[in-house]
C-alpha cells in the first residue's frame, strides 16, 4: 500500500578505506608491538572485521613516552606562531576529510552517522582550532606568570569518542 521510503544517507562506507592491520605510531612511524599481540576491531552494525589493532604493553608505552619527550624538546622550542600553524593545519585537514572520518567513526564505534558527522568530527576540529588560537597568546593570558609546557602525558581513550578525546 504505502511506498514510503527514506533515501539512504549520502555517506557510504565505500569512501573510507581501512588497512588489514595497523601498528603503534611511535617516533613518526608505525611499529609492531613488543608482544606481537593484536586484537580485531569489528563494525558493530555488520559484525564484519575491520582491522587488527596492536595491544600495547609496558615496553611499548616506555618507548612511546621516550619518543614523545624527545619530540617535545623540538616542539616547545618552536615559536608560538609556528606551533599554531601546525595545529591549524591539523584542524583544517580534519575538516577537509571530515566525511571520511565520520564514516570511520561510525563503522568503528557503531554510533549513528548523524552523531559522528554533526558532533564528533566537527567538535574535534574545533578543539584544534581553539588551541591553535591560544598558542601565541599564552604569554599575555596569565598576568605576572610565565607559562611553560607540562610535558608528555599519556591517555587511555575510551571507545565512544576516540577522535574527540584525542583532540
Amino acid at each position: 500500500m504505502s511506498r514510503w521510503e527514506y533515501a539512504p544517507a549520502p555517506e557510504s562506507t565505500d569512501i573510507a578505506s581501512v588497512a588489514d592491520t595497523y601498528g603503534l605510531y611511535i617516533g613518526g612511524e608505525f611499529v609492531e608491538p613488543a608482544s606481537g599481540d593484536y586484537f580485531k576491531t569489528i563494525n558493530p552494525a555488520t559484525e564484519e572485521v575491520l582491522s587488527a589493532i596492536p595491544i600495547a604493553g609496558e615496553v611499548d608505552i616506555d618507548r612511546a613516552v621516550g619518543a614523545a619527550r624527545k619530540a617535545a624538546e623540538t616542539w616547545s622550542a618552536l615559536a608560538p606562531a609556528d606551533r599554531s600553524k601546525f595545529m591549524y593545519r591539523i584542524a583544517r585537514a580534519m575538516q577537509e576529510r571530515s566525511r571520511e572520518l565520520a564514516v570511520l567513526e561510525s563503522m568503528n564505534g557503531g554510533k549513528p552517522i548523524r552523531e559522528s558527522r554533526d558532533i564528533d568530527v566537527p567538535l574535534a576540529a574545533a578543539h584544534f582550532f581553539y588551541y591553535a588560537g591560544w598558542a601565541d597568546k599564552l604569554e599575555y593570558a596569565f598576568a605576572g606568570r610565565t607559562t611553560k609546557p607540562l610535558g608528555v602525558c599519556a591517555q587511555i581513550i575510551p571507545w565512544n569518542f576516540p577522535l574527540l578525546m584525542l583532540a
Binding site: R3, E5, Y6, A7
Partner: peptide, 12 residues
C-alpha cells in the same frame, strides 16, 4: 531533515 526521493517522493 529526513529525505524522500524518486518513487517515494512521487508517491508522497
Amino acid at each position: 531533515t529526513r529525505s524522500i526521493k524518486k518513487d517515494s517522493k512521487l508517491w508522497a
